[in-house]
Design a protein around this nucleic acid. Sequence first.
DNA 1: ATTGAAATTGAGATTAAGTTGCAATAAGAA
DNA 2: TTCTTATTGCAACTTAATCTCAATTTCAAT
Lengths: 156, 156
Amino acid sequence: MEKVVLIFKDYLRKRGLKFTPEREVVLREVFSLHKHFDAEQLYQNLYKRKKKISRASVYRTLPLLVRAGLITETLRCQGRTSYEHIFGHGHHDHMLCIGCGKVIEFRSEKIEKLQKEICRKYGFKPVEHRLGIKGYCRECQKKIKMKKKLPLDREK
Amino acid sequence: MEKVVLIFKDYLRKRGLKFTPEREVVLREVFSLHKHFDAEQLYQNLYKRKKKISRASVYRTLPLLVRAGLITETLRCQGRTSYEHIFGHGHHDHMLCIGCGKVIEFRSEKIEKLQKEICRKYGFKPVEHRLGIKGYCRECQKKIKMKKKLPLDREK
DNA sequence: ATTGAAATTGAGATTAAGTTGCAATAAGAA
DNA sequence: TTCTTATTGCAACTTAATCTCAATTTCAAT
Ligand SMILES: [Mn+2]
Ligand SMILES: [Mn+2]
Ligand SMILES: [Zn+2]
Ligand SMILES: [Zn+2]
């Protein structure tokens, strides 16, 4: 935790930017959460906790954290850009349940390797990638089957 | 081309929706383009061509084409939802050049297969997936190297 | 061919994520 | 402590996308 503060301070100092209380609050909130989040959620969390930081500052801080290599954009859900912290966590890909919204994280060395190979074949220099699989999680599949077995439970 | 018209008509009839001139125009435009596009681009194309269809109708028709299985959303570029037609084309993934915006399409059976395996492992039933790799295409890599070799060409 | 219920259209209003201009304020190097 | 420069909060703005609603059109049933 204090490590990320140092990294962020360093990032800022190197380009003449300032380590403000607002930026620190956002940074700490981001790293106290352990799931995906978006700007509005973060703002609401802080607001409820009486840390009255403006939306503008939240929106302005997140891109800084991205550029500092501390967080990254992930799947865009319901029109909002969502983020997750990556410091400490390695790169991974996602499955997203269409039924309940659950996010499953996974990492496949084989897929990572194959991507690199394909890029080489096309002379393409990869910088980042995102793989998202949408579908139904185990629980939601069960729910769907249940519905089919109870034909009296009509929708609407 | 006439095939997709039939498919769309069928899709619409089956759910009591109507095959209107506006929908036909959008459908034909979509299938005359052979690249990724977004709603605004499509609207502009039609507008210039004196096919004055409202933006609302364009925005309303595209999701129908998605549900009919004729087109699909792809990488979201610059805040706009972009689409591509899939009827005729098989599924594929994308590389997107950060330098020039070029899109390279590819398909890897191995990656497709590995994804299915991973889903099975997690009890996840995949419906669709999207893999996008951002980076630099061959040409843009050359440009970058050129700049480094000409130290007099400073930015700004 | 006519009719009529139900769907669709276009124009403009609306929503919501995200950005921006600006005057007041604060950071931090000297 | 001083002083330059960055940052803040607020509200105004931008922009993709959706919605509202009166007028129009489709198409299935006569
Ligand atoms: Mn994640
Ligand atoms: Mn494509
Ligand atoms: Zn689920
Ligand atoms: Zn390029």
